[in-house]
């Protein structure tokens, strides 16, 4: 279970998150929606341990472990996975090599032997089939020269392969056309099970039409201003964020 308690975060002395509470139980899918600059991506980055953010107050716990002192790779080994809003290009490193290294890093942490090349290929090909990706993805350099949609699909491939227990998807729907969105959503839905927690960060309702969240949160100016079930997303889509922000200001 992920428990965020009164979290305050700043970057270069500028407060971004101003006291956030969030609990995600195993098996639950939560969505965080909110306008640009509300702190959604900051939350994703802080959870995964990006270093330029300062936690000024509050705590982050996952499976009872305090995340704050852990490096990003240690958090990854705890089962935390971030699907990047802007996946990074790594020239000269084949996608195959990255996928295999990531999987082996996980296996090593679990005390398992490295996976052999043939087993690995059959596992990764099976996942690629689900996402309608062809073999050429394996031999291209990581995200280098990929289109926006290809990059996002590649993130979901890593997600399927690494089978994390806490998936944070930062604006996974941006840059996807409707067909790609369906395929990506299918991949994410395959990951849903009673042990896995999923946190969707998005601007728009359209992703939530494919992946139905249990809880929707609205984040604005570093604070959670509303919470509801799947219906809340539809209200937001119809009315925009402004009425919620006004209402909160009036409270």
């Amino acid at each position: 279970m992920l428990i965020i308690n009164k979290l305050q975060v700043s970057i270069q002395n500028k407060a971004i998150l101003k006291g956030i509470d969030l609990k995600i139980k195993p098996g639950e899918v939560h969505a965080i929606m909110g306008p640009n600059g509300s702190g959604k991506s900051t939350l994703a980055n802080v959870l995964s341990g990006r270093e330029e953010y300062d936690i000024t107050a509050g705590t982050l716990h996952y499976q009872g472990v305090d995340l704050a002192p852990l490096t990003p790779d240690e958090r990854a080994h705890l089962g935390l996975f971030l699907s990047f809003q802007y996946p990074v290009e790594i020239p000269g490193v084949s996608n195959l090599y990255l996928l295999k290294s990531a999987l082996n890093a996980k296996r090593k942490h679990q005390g398992l032997d490295e996976i052999d090349a043939i087993d690995f290929l059959s596992v990764v090909r099976e996942k690629m089939k689900l996402l309608q990706m062809d073999d050429s993805y394996l031999y291209r350099d990581v995200n280098t020269g990929f289109s926006g949609g290809e990059k996002k699909r590649n993130e979901i491939l890593q997600l399927l392969l690494l089978e994390p227990s806490l998936c944070i998807l930062d604006e996974t729907d941006s840059g996807l056309d409707i067909d790609a969105l369906r395929i990506v959503a299918k991949g994410i839905n395959l990951m849903r099970n009673e042990n896995r927690s999923i946190l969707l960060i998005t601007h728009y309702q359209r992703l939530l039409d494919y992946i139905k969240p249990d809880v929707v949160h609205v984040l604005s100016d570093g604070k959670m201003i509303a919470e509801g079930d799947y219906q809340l997303a539809a209200v937001l889509e119809a009315e925009g964020y402004e009425p919620f922000i006004q209402k909160k200001a009036g409270d």
């Binding site: 490096t71 990003p72 790779d73 990854a76 990047f84 990074v88 790594i90 990255l98 990531a102 890593q158």
Partner: peptide
């Protein structure tokens, strides 16, 4: 950061 997030140490 990207590689670390995938569990690969520095």
């Amino acid at each position: 950061f990207y590689l670390a997030q995938r569990g690969i140490d520095t």
